[in-house]
């Protein structure tokens, strides 16, 4: 399924695009967890991706959690049900939201969920897509320089914004959006697979 994107040059199917976006989320989320120090750095291993050395968690529980979610997100991406993926960092003791990493997912024009049945393909070079993804991840890494220190035990949660009529298994529950009152927002770069467009943004508590 993912092989399609490499088989024919410069053509990306919806499935391939969903795969790419999910893969990006995996590395993006892992990068955030590592860079923000939510889990101890010892629990991460490194791996080459997008021409960067990226850290991915080795903690079995975190891994399982991420895999579960990303698999579901992939399905939803293919069905065109996801609007947004949000990573929320909360203080464990006070349950206050400290950071909010927002990945807004849009469909490029011509690839709206309804109109995609005819097997239409995107035309973007995989290398260019990966370069764009790399730039976003680089920016995530660079965010450490301005984000306030998370000087407490933190946990993270992933929130998926879906359409009202999306198929949801009972493993999922509705949740609050966990906005940060009085937040500062920094828009990051975006990337597009020519089918999905993902815009990243981080908001954090401004008054420290």
């Amino acid at each position: 399924m993912a092989g399609n994107k490499q088989g024919t040059q410069n053509s990306i199917t919806l499935k391939g695009s969903a795969q790419l976006v999910t893969e990006f989320f995996n590395f993006g989320i892992n990068s955030i967890l590592y860079q923000r120090g939510i889990y101890p750095p010892e629990s991460f291993t490194y791996q080459q991706q997008y021409g960067l050395t990226l850290f991915t968690t080795t903690d079995e529980k975190v891994k399982e959690y991420l895999n579960n979610i990303l698999e579901q997100i992939k399905d939803w991406l293919e069905a065109g049900e996801v609007q947004r993926l949000v990573l929320v960092v909360t203080n464990v003791d006070t349950e206050e939201t400290l950071e909010r990493w927002d990945f807004d997912i849009q469909h490029e024009s011509g690839f709206e969920p309804g109109s995609l049945k005819e097997g239409k393909m995107g035309t973007k070079d995989l290398k260019i897509i990966q370069k764009e993804m790399r730039d976003v991840i680089r920016q995530i890494t660079a965010c450490v320089t301005f984000l306030p220190l998370l000087d407490c035990v933190c946990s993270f949660d992933l929130k998926v914004y879906t359409n009202q009529n999306a198929e949801v298994s009972d493993k999922w529950a509705d949740s609050a959006p966990c906005f940060i009152a009085n937040s500062q927002e920094v828009r990051l770069k975006s990337f597009s697979t020519s089918i999905h467009k993902v815009e990243a943004c981080v908001s954090y508590k401004a008054d420290v």
Binding site: G37, N68, L150, V153, S155, Y161, T162, W172, A173, P177
Partner: peptide
């Protein structure tokens, strides 16, 4: 919904990710 469009659902996985180790000190400090 705190200002969200009404046709959106916000979902989160019921099994939450484990919290960071107690006493783990953020290296970034």
């Amino acid at each position: 919904n705190d200002g969200q469009q009404p046709d959106t659902r916000i979902l989160s996985f019921k099994n939450k990710a484990p919290q960071g180790k107690e006493g783990h000190v953020n290296n970034l400090k």
